[in-house]
Design a protein around this nucleic acid. Structure first.
Lengths: 129, 129
DNA sequence: ATCCTTGCAAAAGTTTTGCATTCCC
DNA sequence: GGGAATGCAAAACTTTTGCAAGGAT
């Protein structure tokens, strides 16, 4: 830690406690409650810095860049088709160790999965689509 | 088909014959070989139109929006960590029928998988990283 | 006092829109 | 000739950068 790290801490904590990756606007909105004068440029700069430090990383989902804290272990994302929120889920439905060779000669080093569907909240509040 | 559909046809064919989803710049570049005066606005307009007609759809991958033809059946994407190209692959490593309930109460309606690794070309041309 | 960080505003990049012209029928 | 599609340029947005002001030591 170099020095004054107020916004860095606020933003890092927001991402650590979020239910899933957050969009920049959302981060700005949430952080503004603690830091009312916070500018969007600082949000971008802080996110870039945290990403370089490997504390967070970007995921692109449904055309939007979102950020999440690292250190959550292997996980995937669930995007609710009804409310648009994205959640982190820990069950992994595949067995694809690095080195696995896929038909066609593609050698696998990693994978990302996004699940789509209805989140628990939207099951309570809405009937079937 | 309403009428003059030159660029529409060119762009649709590019996407149908591509090895995977293409970025807008790439589509513009490829289409320009047939249509030298083609403007980027027309590319965006055409992509939007084709997407509304359900002939193509957008996928976001590694922070970039790409487009692919529909009608390729269930498939996933392989993104090469070495050359950056994205390929369509047809093996699906999961069994997740719609209605499956994930731990936490997430009801699944669909899924998207992106595999990362080394593509066949990059295995020929480069040694291990 | 000095160095680093911030907010603001301008700039750069990407996607969309307005409009006059061109293209087809 | 008339309606639709196109290219260009401007407008909207999103993200980055420059810079003067503010904060911390």
């Amino acid at each position: 830690m170099t020095r004054s790290t107020r916004q860095r801490g606020v933003i890092a904590r927001i991402l650590e406690t979020a239910e899933g990756p957050l969009a920049v606007n959302d981060i700005h909105l949430r952080a503004s409650q603690d830091l009312p004068r916070l500018g969007i440029a600082t949000v971008y700069r802080t996110l870039k810095l945290l990403a370089e430090q490997q504390q967070i990383h970007a995921v692109t989902l449904d055309g939007e860049t979102r950020y999440e804290a690292v250190g959550k272990g292997h996980h995937h994302h669930f995007s609710c088709n009804y409310c648009g929120r994205v959640f982190t889920v820990y069950n992994c439905p595949v067995q694809l160790p690095a080195g696995t060779e896929y038909p066609g000669g593609f050698v696998i080093e990693g994978h990302e999965i996004t699940l789509y569907g209805r989140c628990p909240d939207c099951q309570k509040t809405q009937g079937p689509s």
